[in-house]
């Protein structure tokens, strides 16, 4: 057992646990953040996606002893039902979720993707951006559309902020 300290969604956390437990298990069992889901457990489906220092990773392949001092963001940190992120609003608007099991992983991967782009992406770029996430229900069309909608929204807000000479405005 060891004491491990790291940040989750902006808050300092201290957990006493085995260093070789996966980050996913610690988030779910020790910190009760059950948004991130385990599906394949092998890095193939992306349902466990979280960000570590803004980079999206599979939390099922990270051992918690490796994240001492790191900054982690889960789907709960992207947005909640009372304070939704544009990507979550877009998923609802476009009907991009069915059973919902894959959705948190897609939301995190899409948020990380949106953070890194500088213009509205092409469909191909979106597909490439979420290639690490699998959905067995939707057929992806609506997920891709939702991400495109969110991207358009993001850049139109930035555009509006620029024309008002106010870059501090809510960028996204």
């Amino acid at each position: 057992m060891a004491t491990i300290r790291f940040k989750v969604n902006g808050k300092e956390k201290v957990v006493d646990t085995h260093t070789t437990k996966t980050l996913l298990d610690v988030l779910r069992d020790d910190l009760y953040l059950t948004g991130s889901k385990e599906c394949c457990g092998k890095g193939e489906c992306g349902s466990c996606s979280v960000m570590i220092n803004d980079e999206v990773v599979c939390s099922c392949l990270v051992l918690v002893g490796q994240v001492e001092g790191e900054d982690i963001k889960t789907v709960e940190g992207v947005g909640t039902s009372t304070n939704m992120d544009i990507i979550q609003e877009a998923f609802i608007k476009e009907g991009a979720t069915q059973c919902g099991y894959c959705t948190p992983g897609f939301i995190v991967a899409a948020r990380s993707f949106l953070n890194k782009i500088e213009k509205v992406p092409t469909l191909e770029e979106i597909e490439e951006g979420i290639a690490g996430n699998i959905c067995r229900c939707t057929g992806y069309t609506k997920i891709v559309k939702a991400i495109q909608t969110a991207a358009e929204e993001r850049f139109s807000r930035i555009g509006a902020a620029v024309t008002q000479g106010n870059l501090q405005g809510k960028g996204d």
Binding site: T19, T20, T22, G41, K42, G43, C58, C60, L61, V62, L63, G65, Q66, E68
Partner: peptide, 27 residues
């Protein structure tokens, strides 16, 4: 040694790599 873990953790879970010690070099 344990770096990104994308091979190591998969193989640990599958029971192929079960060392006594992971030497985590990610930091």
């Amino acid at each position: 040694l344990l770096a990104g873990g994308t091979d190591a953790v998969v193989r640990m879970k599958e029971g192929h790599w079960r060392p006594k010690l992971w030497l985590n070099i990610k930091g």
